[in-house]
């Protein structure tokens, strides 16, 4: 016996229910879409979606890749948050790195952008030069800076001695100076990137605002302070958010420049993950650290999002 629906179909009068599901699917491009999506979806499902879920599962296990996995509940997290001195130290170091390098790189990037925001002849040469560190491999650049920081024969101390500083810092060998050294290098590498973003922002500030201010008798500094900075604040917000996300994941330069030392002064969260996971093969523990890192990044981003209204000026 034909169902109501089938009779309706035979009469060329589709039922409402069938239209919402089956017919909609048929009228959509689902078939073609699947073909277009398939390679991408496959990669996404295996290497991102599955991996995220698997990392979450692992963080509740003790897993060393040799013996069978053991369920340990929350104890990986418990140990990390309350019982791991080194983890506490790498958290502090990573925060030190982030809050040292991000504001500096933003200020320097903004200065560079103002500097190259002219029509002077040959300005593209300067823009190109300022951006060069950004495209360079962090590993190669870190080898270079390791040599620059060499306390006896490196360029930096040679220059400092040349201008009369008798005992320049020993940089990478001094626990107090190693992190500042890492920060200086990162600012050098990152500033050109921020410059490009700020330059785009600067070129978007309407000229008539400056003209009006000039008529009102505002000087250069006043114009910069009360027009340029507020108008750039959406760019600044954006740069701040992505810089903090990036800085919390610092690894390459810390490994090459100092290998985390001296005395763990430059040991960072991601280096901790690398050591726990891929040197000591504590996969569950490393996965828990990765999730804590994600939570931290997420909370910081959320916090900035919440408080942007206080200082970000949208038109």
């Amino acid at each position: 016996m034909a169902t109501v629906g089938e009779r309706a179909l035979a009469e060329g009068r589709p039922t409402a229910r069938r239209r919402t599901w089956w017919q909609q699917l048929r009228r959509s491009d689902a078939g073609v879409a699947l073909l277009f999506l398939l390679p991408n979806l496959l990669g996404f499902l295996v290497f991102t979606a599955r991996a995220v879920i698997e990392a979450f599962r692992l963080s509740f296990y003790r897993a060393d890749l040799l013996t069978p996995e053991v369920w340990v509940g929350l104890s990986n997290y418990q140990r990390l948050l309350f019982n791991d001195e080194l983890f506490r130290k790498v958290l502090v170091n990573t925060a030190y790195y982030t809050f040292g390098s991000v504001p500096l790189a933003i200020i320097v990037g903004l200065l560079l952008a103002v500097l190259v925001n002219t029509q002077l002849r040959g300005i593209t040469v300067f823009r190109t030069a300022f951006f060069m560190p950004v495209v360079s491999s962090v590993v190669a650049v870190s080898l270079l800076w390791q040599w620059l920081y060499n306390s006896d024969f490196g360029l930096i101390n040679e220059a400092l001695r040349a201008i009369g500083l008798r005992n320049p810092p020993i940089w990478l060998s001094d626990p107090r100076w190693a992190m500042p050294a890492l920060i200086i290098m990162s600012v050098w590498r990152q500033a050109g990137y921020n410059m490009v973003l700020f330059l785009a922002g600067l070129q978007g500030v309407p000229v008539h605002l400056y003209e009006a201010a000039e008529i009102d008798g505002a000087n250069r500094w006043q114009r910069f302070w009360s027009i340029t900075l507020p108008m750039l604040s959406p760019t600044t917000f954006f740069v701040l958010v992505i810089s903090i996300i990036g800085s919390f994941q610092v690894f390459d330069q810390a490994l090459i420049l100092t290998n985390g030392g001296p005395a763990d002064a430059t040991h960072t969260v991601v280096m901790f993950i690398y050591n726990q996971g891929f040197q000591y093969f504590k996969m569950g523990y490393a996965a828990a650290v990765a999730w804590i890192l994600f939570a931290l990044i997420f909370l910081l981003t959320l916090f900035q999002w919440r408080y942007q209204r206080q200082w970000v000026h949208y038109e």
Binding site: A51, A55, Q249, V289, F294, I297
Partner: peptide
């Protein structure tokens, strides 16, 4: 962050 997926 990439560090989450890198382990699995």
């Amino acid at each position: 962050p990439a560090q989450v997926t890198i382990i699995p």
